[in-house]
Design a protein around this nucleic acid. Structure first.
Lengths: 195, 195
DNA sequence: CTGAAATTGTTATTGACTACCAACTGGTAT
DNA sequence: ATACCAGTTGGTAGTCAATAACAATTTCAG
């Protein structure tokens, strides 16, 4: 179902999609986000601007990466039920991030820097954070068979705040520090917010 | 300096600015954000669309409200130094919010609902949250004469997450619950994130 | 091989936003 | 009062993101 028979059609579509995304990233990093027009990206990828918008709903969307969320959700669900929600979330995040980080570090740094330094993309990212918060709260709730409570939503939002702070600090330090460690530090802070 | 001699010119400018903002809000609430063009707002306010952009950098910006931040910063700074940062922030936020809430509740609800239900505005709001986080961290740091640390930044981000969750829940309940109380509940959750 | 469906390109349109220039208005010096 | 100057405004034209309509092309199924 996730792979609906890889006919010639699907292969071409996948190739086109990847081409658009790669050329877009390359041009954004080279010339800047605002200075790169959709028309330019499309022609670099060998398609028309109409086709661009058939593959991505907006210019901003081409930078997004939805791969992480499903992986994280799975990690959250499989955490032992006796763990508290913060610990479960911490384990899942560190687990997932370590994997991405070790294989994709440079690309992740470039992409994150691009997002954080481009106002339009920063807004978009946070807008996604909103749905990520919902996903986190939901995963935490189903893990213990409970409902999504106000408390879980606040926890998910706080964790996202900590994670985005870690990402920001990581980029500010030009990727010199270990990102998963920064995130663990963020979780540590959340665990001692009693003063 | 904040009032550069109220000559006729300044008065006119202030009046024009307010007229644009009020007509914009009215039209947004009546017809929806996307269905309202800048041209329409401008003509309703009796100016050209060029003048609109001379007063506001974008269509989104006309919905913003920068009044709260300086007030909050002041409240944070004047909290007793012996309080922990979370408590200081809590007191300041509840103090400031109570004041706004008791005088502007209906307008606040309408405006917040508009922002939360309009994707473009939601993104914008979070983009501001980024600078608000910096302001919070800075205010907390100067309060005790210290530097802006990673810990303070995480704390500020977590608080903003809790506050936005409270706002969201408040709008979801159509303003039936007491917003400051919801925010206090959010702070309570943050104070017990040890599990 | 032929027809149905999906994919794409061309063209045109809307709307946010900017640049440029000409007209006007409030404040100021004479 | 007059004339001058700076700040404010509007009109026009332009760019760019995003959408719609239609025609041409290509893939797949029978």
């Amino acid at each position: 179902m996730s792979t609906p028979a890889p006919g010639l059609r699907e292969q071409r579509k996948a190739r086109t999609r990847k081409a658009i995304q790669e050329h877009a990233l390359r041009l954004f990093l080279a010339d800047g986000y605002d200075a790169t027009t959709v028309e330019r990206i499309a022609s670099a990828a060998g398609v028309s601007h109409m086709t661009f918008f058939r593959y991505f709903p907006s210019k901003e969307a081409v930078v997004e990466n939805d791969e992480y969320d499903p992986l994280l959700i799975e990690f959250i669900r499989t955490q032992p039920a006796e763990l508290g929600p913060l610990t479960a979330l911490r384990n899942a995040v560190v687990l997932g991030m370590r994997e991405v980080y070790d294989t994709d570090k440079d690309a992740l740094l470039a992409r994150t820097r691009l997002i954080l330094t481009t106002p339009a993309l920063r807004g978009r990212q946070w807008r996604n954070g909103d749905s990520t918060q919902r996903l986190f709260a939901e995963a935490l709730a189903t893990r213990t068979g409970g409902d999504i409570t106000f408390e879980l939503r606040v926890l998910a939002a706080a964790v996202l705040g900590a994670l985005s702070t870690a990402l920001t600090a990581w980029v500010e330090g030009d990727g010199a520090e270990d990102l998963p460690s920064l995130m663990e530090r963020g979780f540590d802070v959340l665990g001692h917010l009693d003063s």
